[in-house]
Amino acid sequence: MRRILPLLVLIALAVAAFVLLHGVGWDDLARHQGELKDWVSAHPIASVALYLAVYIATVALSLPQAALVTVSGGFLFGAVLGTMLTVIGATTGATILVVVVRSAFAQLLDRNRHRIPQRVQVRLARDGFSYLLAIRLVPLFPFWIVNLACVVVGVRLTVFVPATLLGIIPVSFILSSIGSGLGTILAQGHKPDLSVLFSPHILLPLLALAVVSLLPSLLRRRPNAGV
């Protein structure tokens, strides 16, 4: 019960947050953007701490408002600081989720670990960092699904944390940069176009980075094609 209790708490908080935040979006940010900016200016340290807490909770609870919070970080703190806070918050929240879920299902996961082919387990142990980094770099895979997949395949925290932290920097910076110009967009009555992440001039460089991150594992496999 001690293992499952933290997971039950997360689930209860996620349900409550989903109900409370249902419908919250860009219109709400547009209405309160002046007040938010003023509060951040008047309380710089408290606003940073609050943003980190909100982001950690958003990721740990796998809430759908993560993109909204990321863009808001760029709007409130600028592209650079917004990116730093987002990366720290997202990595911390994802780590909390992984630890809680892994603890809750430790026995079940251990009993079924043999179902993962031995070759896959060997590659994950050897090249898990490269694989996870490549996945994080490309915004095609839902963040929370990757988190849970890492639990299932048994990615170690010593791999999960640095690969997540480094892998989410590019997309976080892009969204924070969009957020830094959000005031003008909202003032004109528009909403930010986040589909820019999937435009060729953004997606192709990210795919290239993902391929580069996989090169060490690909080069190691060449002499031992059968491994």
Rank of each mutant, 00 (worst) to 15 (best):
M1I: 10
R2N: 14
P6R: 07
P6M: 01
L10Q: 00
I11A: 10
A12P: 00
A12N: 02
L13C: 01
A16L: 12
A16R: 00
A16W: 00
A17Y: 00
L21T: 06
H22D: 10
G23C: 07
G23W: 05
G25R: 04
L29A: 12
R31S: 14
E35H: 09
E35T: 11
E35L: 05
K37S: 12
D38F: 02
S41H: 11
S41Q: 14
S41V: 11
A42N: 08
H43P: 07
P44E: 06
I45V: 15
A46Q: 13
A46T: 10
S47H: 08
V48T: 11
V48W: 01
L52Y: 08
V54C: 14
Y55N: 13
A57D: 13
T58W: 01
V59C: 12
L61S: 01
A66D: 08
A66C: 06
A67C: 00
V69M: 12
S72K: 01
G73K: 01
G73W: 07
F77S: 02
F77M: 03
F77Y: 06
V80T: 15
V80F: 13
V80Y: 13
T83H: 07
T91C: 00
T91L: 04
T92R: 04
T92Y: 00
G93A: 07
L97Q: 02
V100W: 13
A104E: 06
A106D: 08
Q107Y: 10
L108M: 09
L108Q: 14
L108S: 09
L109G: 02
D110V: 07
D110H: 04
N112R: 13
I116A: 14
P117R: 06
R119K: 10
R119T: 06
Q121D: 12
V122R: 11
A125E: 12
Y131L: 13
L132T: 09
I135G: 01
L137E: 03
L140H: 04
F141R: 04
F141V: 15
P142K: 05
F143N: 11
V146F: 05
C150E: 07
V151Q: 10
V152Q: 08
V153D: 05
G154W: 09
T158S: 14
P162V: 03
P162H: 02
G167E: 03
G167L: 03
I168H: 10
V171E: 11
F173L: 15
F173W: 14
I174G: 03
L175T: 12
L175A: 11
K191L: 02
K191I: 14
D193G: 06
L194C: 05
V196P: 02
P200C: 09
H201C: 02
I202Q: 03
P205Q: 03
L206H: 09
L207K: 05
A208T: 15
A208V: 15
V211P: 09
S213P: 03
L215G: 08
L215H: 09
L215T: 14
R220E: 12
P223V: 02
A225F: 09
A225V: 03
V227D: 13
